[in-house]
């Protein structure tokens, strides 16, 4: 006798033991921030606006039977959390679901968990130090290192990412196995080399790469005195990207210009249009405290902390079986 559900795999993608360890790690995160008087908040997962960043694809949400897009699933809680900062929240953190369409693989699930926090008064450096503490707590490992984006590329990709001309970048990408790099843009080449050369080169342990090119940082403040560099950092554990942080842009007009630029770029690339989040810009106009913020991929950190190699092994039901 064969019922429609026969042979259907209903089981979780994570072992129950992995979920137990995950719950303990999440508790540790909450205790860490509670002890430091950082307020836990919740912001909408379903929102009226979303990021126009071309590298991110937001799921569109429709009401039943309606064609009009009513909202988007958030790719990160960044805009809403910044509005809380502008409203005087003080330091805040949250553990929330975020969604990025099309991102599925060993280290990606379209629905994933972000640990994001903001620290008024913190520079990038002081926030990096706090990220290192969080990772020390969760991973149970001591050492961490820092290296600038430029130095990391010089050392591990053999080129200067700020100076190398586009032809040379493309040639190096082709040599590294991306044969169609001949028409690639500069940032795509750098993204490729980050994965193909730098992430393997920086070695194991906690490594923070800081001072990203300004072109790769639409929400970060530019470095005073060097507008080619943004105050952005990324954190890697064993060569796996686990976090992204900024000295946050507080200038409303510049923020609006960057959002509009990204939106034009979306149109040029034929990507679905996303409206500008005027509420975010209005909040910045009202005044955002000087602050730094960071988002960590909690699934990946739990994965590494528990010795797994695929994020689905620490997610109850990965999208394939959700």
């Amino acid at each position: 006798m064969s019922e429609p559900e026969s042979g259907v795999d209903w089981r979780p993608s994570a072992a129950v033991e992995a979920l137990r360890r995950r719950a303990l790690l999440v508790e540790q995160v909450r205790a860490f921030f509670r002890a430091r008087q950082v307020l836990e908040v919740e912001t909408p997962v379903l929102s009226r606006a979303t990021t126009p960043e071309t590298a991110l694809a937001s799921y569109e949400v429709h009401s039943p039977g309606e064609e009009r897009v009513e909202g988007w699933l958030q790719t990160s809680p960044e805009f809403a959390m910044k509005r809380l900062l502008c409203a005087g929240s003080g330091p805040i953190f949250q553990i929330t679901k975020a969604f990025r369409a099309g991102e599925e693989g060993r280290l990606h699930n379209p629905e994933f968990t972000i640990l994001e926090w903001y620290r008024p008064g913190f520079t990038c450096e002081s926030l990096i130090a706090e990220v290192e503490e969080v990772l020390r707590l969760l991973l149970g490992r001591g050492d961490s290192r820092r290296i600038s984006y430029r130095e990391a590329f010089r050392r591990f990709a053999g080129l200067d990412p700020m100076q190398a001309d586009l032809g040379e970048l493309r040639r190096i990408c082709r040599d590294r196995g991306w044969l169609e790099a001949s028409n690639a843009e500069r940032d795509a080449c750098l993204d490729f080399l980050l994965d193909a050369s730098v992430q393997g080169g920086i070695g194991s342990g906690v490594v923070t790469i800081f001072d990203f090119p300004a072109s790769q940082s639409s929400l970060a403040r530019l470095k005073p005195g060097d507008p080619s560099i943004a105050e952005r950092f990324e954190v890697f554990v064993d060569g796996i990207e686990v976090g992204n942080g900024y000295r946050e842009l507080t200038d409303a007009r510049e923020q609006r210009e960057r959002l509009e630029r990204e939106r034009r770029e979306r149109r040029r690339m034929g990507l679905p249009d996303t409206p500008i989040d005027h509420r975010l810009v209005a909040a910045l106009r009202a005044g955002m405290p000087e602050c730094s913020g960071v988002a960590l991929g909690l699934d990946r950190i739990v994965m590494i902390a528990t010795g797994h190699t695929r994020v689905e092994e620490v997610i109850s039901f990965s999208f394939a079986g959700a």
Binding site: A55, G102, E103, D187, L194, Q216, E234
Partner: peptide, 11 residues
């Protein structure tokens, strides 16, 4: 293997 930096190009 699907690889993609959080804020960058997917490969």
């Amino acid at each position: 293997e699907f690889v993609k930096p959080g804020k960058g190009q997917a490969f």
